[in-house]
Design a protein around this nucleic acid. Structure first.
Lengths: 341, 341
DNA sequence: CTTCGATGCGCAATCGATTGCATTTTAGGA
DNA sequence: TCCTAAAATGCAATCGATTGCGCATCGAAG
């Protein structure tokens, strides 16, 4: 029961001209008279002509689709990166295709495959936590398709990346806790040694050392940094004979877990335990007390990534040099870490 | 610097057969011998052949892409609907293309246009709050492309839909507040008269009347139901000489706003004011007290929508009859509305 | 030894838009 | 009126995969 879709040939027939002319008229080709352009556009309108991107894509070898791969779209961070990408991409007439991996390696591989088959013109990705092997991403590069990583990245692949200075984020968070008088600061980090977590950990460590404090490995708890993990990590810390008076979690969910457990155990936040998370998720300001955290300027990350894509796709980009953009994170101080003087 | 992509013709040449045979071999056509199938697959592997979906899409008139339109992907509700859709769609070899409208009408129109040009095989959508005119959606239907609405829907268009029983949701929430002893229950509803909000309001009203209480319009506050709106609505209510002892918000953010203001004003939740929200967003269990809310079974909504799509796309679907699936919502009682007896 | 139904594969058209090159039309000058 | 460069349009191939139809080949039955 499908309606017949109108093509440029239908327009051509109606006007007794050829499809070539119609095509050129619609694309505002300089060698077509204004008169025909007008008539063509008018009839296109009239018969409800809808350009077939697929046909154009096949002919041109470009789909005008930009693929985005994120672990999940339901986090403020990722969704605003996506928004940032869209802002730039749309003005350049690119449509985006958002795909979620749910942090699963197989799904990620399948997704890359799908995007490749869909002949996207570029891919902007933040890979899954599970991912250890990057050959599926190499495949994108091998085909000469621009690939840009953001947030979670990998220096081994020769790929442009947009990241924040996670070291600085970790440093600022920890330094802030020290300034609030914390003497024993714990850190929640990820089991998977992705660079972002390694860097946050380094920042934590350096901040401690720079302030004459010792780096105690028993205060560094590894997990997957989800809510439950944060809870468990906190419970584990509370079993120590000398419990910490500060927690810097490398994730927002982890911080919520720490907060919940603290409250349940009757430990005052921030006075007995001060907490700082990472990533300005919407819910961090919904907790009581509200959670201090690190703002990553996610929309700007998206803007930057999309801009790199546009550069790399442009013809005059003969000598490809992967670039790395590092944005500065910002500490947002809320109630969970602000002690009254 | 693009690498040459291998085509079926390359495979054909290597094996001294024709592209037809290669195509059939790859598609497991019964008239091709097992032997050639094997060799074809082997050489395809060897030269790194990647099927060009675009070419196939052009020829077949179907792209194997399912378009999804949501206001925003960073809400638990929408993202799990998307996940539900993906589950079903992927097993049927469909890829999804997620698009966000940010609740903006113009962006929605542009998005529909883009999906149409991309020749998606179907569209599953929840429209923007701003949307009053639905002609862009009619365009999808006119082209014979399956269109399914979920959550926010519209009975005027002859379109299949998957929704929850918002009336029941409103009823349950209100009834629960009544059972908790609330005598003056306020309701936050949306200014835009989308059916979901109208139904929740009706549920609220009917529950009141069914329990011998009066429906007082001055207790119904209209807004856009975001966090700030919820705060403002609550502030407005608190100016009344007879302040309410229960609030049923038609959104989760609205409920958070009400909770925040109550706490700031020293009003005890749930004892002085009991609060129930709508939609089981992740953050509703992060607040203190945790928020009671209505669970919408979002993933099932997605499953159902995708299944309808698959039905409608199948050839044997001659007589199209739009179906409407209504799922039952569930009341989740948390601290914000549970009074000690 | 012929016939016939399977079986295996090739031919060529097709999907719709684009574009280099050729051809026609137009306008302006001689 | 004729000529020519410029302007406008047409021709035909192309992108890569799919598929109806037709042509062989082969084994088995008659």
């Amino acid at each position: 029961m499908k309606k017949e879709r109108a093509t440029i040939h239908d327009i051509a027939k109606k006007l007794n001209i050829t499809a070539s002319t119609v095509s050129r008229a619609l694309n505002d080709h300089p060698r077509i008279s204004e008169a025909t352009k007008k008539t063509v556009q008018k009839t296109a309108q009239k018969i409800g002509y809808q350009p077939n991107n697929i046909a154009a894509a096949l002919r041109n070898g470009k789909s005008n689709i930009l693929g985005i791969i994120v672990p999940t779209a339901d986090r403020s961070f990722f969704s605003s990166v996506v928004r940032g990408i869209e802002e730039i991409a749309n003005t350049a007439r690119y449509n985006v295709m958002i795909c979620q991996t749910y942090d699963n390696y197989e799904k990620e591989v399948a997704t890359v495959q799908a995007l490749l088959n869909a002949r996207v013109d570029g891919v902007i990705a933040s890979f899954a936590k599970e991912t250890q092997d990057f050959s599926h991403f190499s495949k994108i590069k091998d085909r000469g398709i621009p690939l840009i990583f953001f947030d979670r990245s990998n220096d081994e692949l020769e790929v442009s990346q947009v990241v924040i200075d996670d070291f600085l984020g970790g440093y600022k968070a920890t330094e802030h806790l020290i300034q609030q008088g914390c003497k024993r600061i714990a850190h929640f980090t990820n089991t998977r040694k992705i660079s972002i977590y390694k860097d946050r950990l380094r920042g934590y460590r350096e901040a401690l050392l720079a302030n004459g404090m010792i780096y105690d490995e028993s205060l560094v708890v590894e997990s997957n940094l989800q809510l439950e993990d944060g809870r468990n990590s906190m419970l584990q810390l509370l079993k120590m004979r000398d419990i910490p008076d500060g927690v810097f979690s490398a994730s927002a969910f982890g911080a919520v877990g720490a907060l919940q457990v603290s409250k349940e155990k009757g430990i005052k936040v921030p006075d007995q335990v001060a907490i700082v998370g990472f990533s300005n998720e919407i819910f961090t300001s919904f907790t009581d007390p509200t959670l201090s955290t690190i703002e990553q300027h996610s929309k700007r990350i998206g803007n930057a990534a999309a801009e790199i894509f546009l550069e790399e796709i442009s013809d005059d980009n003969t000598k490809f040099i992967p670039q790395k953009i590092v944005l500065k994170p910002e500490l947002i101080i809320r109630q969970s870490s602000l002690r009254k003087k």
